[in-house]
């Protein structure tokens, strides 16, 4: 058995099994994320939400998926066919491959690489390509405007997100995601770095194109934004990619600020609960806030969005970065 696992075929099949063990629960999670979002928003708006298909509407996501599969994929005239089909696939694939480095428990990451956080940052900054290509290939002015908005928005918010990540890295002294979680054993980073935590969370809302920053798809002015021409499975792939990205960003928030798989206090009843359960609970909390924000706040205007990114978040995160570095140096808390 050992010799098989060390052979190239064995390593390959083990990796595939690990990837499936992560991606299948993830996709089920995405399906139930759409259900939970509708239920939570319904509760906040004194409605019932989906309650017909299955008990409590629990089978609704699968009914939706079946409907999507049955429909016809329409490619508009004048669209760039190859790019038009490629864009949703790109969005979906990028949302999936980012999960390769996420440690759900100590040593549970599929690839525990040294530059894990940079990998995640790189992949999340690529997400904009699916949107831009979709907007351009659709040959439609609404889709194109949505794509342009999205490009400007994601580039703007990445800057402050980068500074927040650098601040966390200063406190950890490593780019490895497992090290980042283990550095929070005594104190989760959202307490000492609270302003950064808030900025990071709001930036993830902008990065995933969620309300109140959902200008790329703003339905009141752009119909549906960049995916206005998409139907059936191509639309479903965008949808899946968007929700998988939300879960990814929540996991990133969990890893950077909420102590990953660590229990809140390392005492008896709390540390009996396995790490992945804590991880999932924290991710669910972040996702709940995503939905809560969507149900509460109206959409930003475009100039307000840019002002928030460049004139508020960027200076605050820059100053806080310098302050953190100075504090670590003065008090001698720099990690070895």
């Amino acid at each position: 058995m050992d010799s098989f696992l060390n052979s190239p075929i064995g390593v390959l099949s083990l990796t595939v099994a690990q990837a499936l063990a992560l991606l299948v629960p993830l996709l089920i999670g995405v399906a139930y994320m759409t259900w939970a979002e509708r239920k939570i928003m319904a509760a906040m708006q004194l409605r019932k939400g989906p309650n017909v298909v299955g008990p409590f509407g629990l089978l609704q996501p699968f009914a939706d998926a079946g409907k999507m599969l049955m429909k016809e994929t329409i490619v508009p005239t004048g669209a760039s066919r190859v790019l038009f089909i490629m864009a949703p696939m790109l969005t979906f694939v990028l949302a999936m491959i980012a999960w390769a480095v996420i440690p759900v428990n100590e040593g549970w990451a599929i690839a525990d690489i040294n530059v894990g956080i940079l990998y995640l940052f790189a992949i999340s900054s690529l997400g904009v390509y699916g949107i831009i290509i979709a907007g351009w290939a659709s040959n439609s002015k609404y889709a194109f405007l949505g794509a342009l908005r999205s490009a400007a928005q994601m580039v703007s918010y990445e800057v402050s997100m980068g500074f927040v990540i650098v601040t966390v890295l200063l406190c950890v002294g490593s780019l490895n995601l497992t090290d980042i979680v283990l550095a929070q054993k005594g104190l989760w980073f959202f307490i000492p770095l609270f302003p950064m935590f808030i900025i990071f969370f709001i930036s993830t809302l902008a990065e995933t194109n969620r309300a109140p920053f959902d200008l790329p798809e703003g339905e009141s002015e752009l119909v549906a934004g960049f995916f206005v021409e998409y139907s059936a499975m191509t639309f479903a792939l965008f949808f899946l990619g968007e929700y998988a990205n939300m879960i990814l960003m929540s996991s990133l928030t969990t890893i950077l600020f909420l102590g990953g798989w660590l229990p809140p206090f390392d005492v008896a009843p709390l540390n009996w609960v396995p790490g992945p359960i804590w991880f999932i609970l924290k991710v669910c909390f972040c996702l709940f806030v995503f939905v809560w924000v969507r149900a509460t706040f109206p959409r930003y205007r475009y100039d307000q969005l840019m002002r928030l990114g460049w004139k508020v978040f960027l200076p605050i995160s820059l100053v806080w970065l310098v302050l953190t570095a100075a504090a670590l140096k003065i008090f001698g808390w720099l990690p070895a």
Binding site: Y129, A151, E158
Partner: peptide, 8 residues
């Protein structure tokens, strides 16, 4: 390059 420069 890919995430910022090429996007612009």
């Amino acid at each position: 390059y890919v995430g910022a420069v090429a996007v612009l």
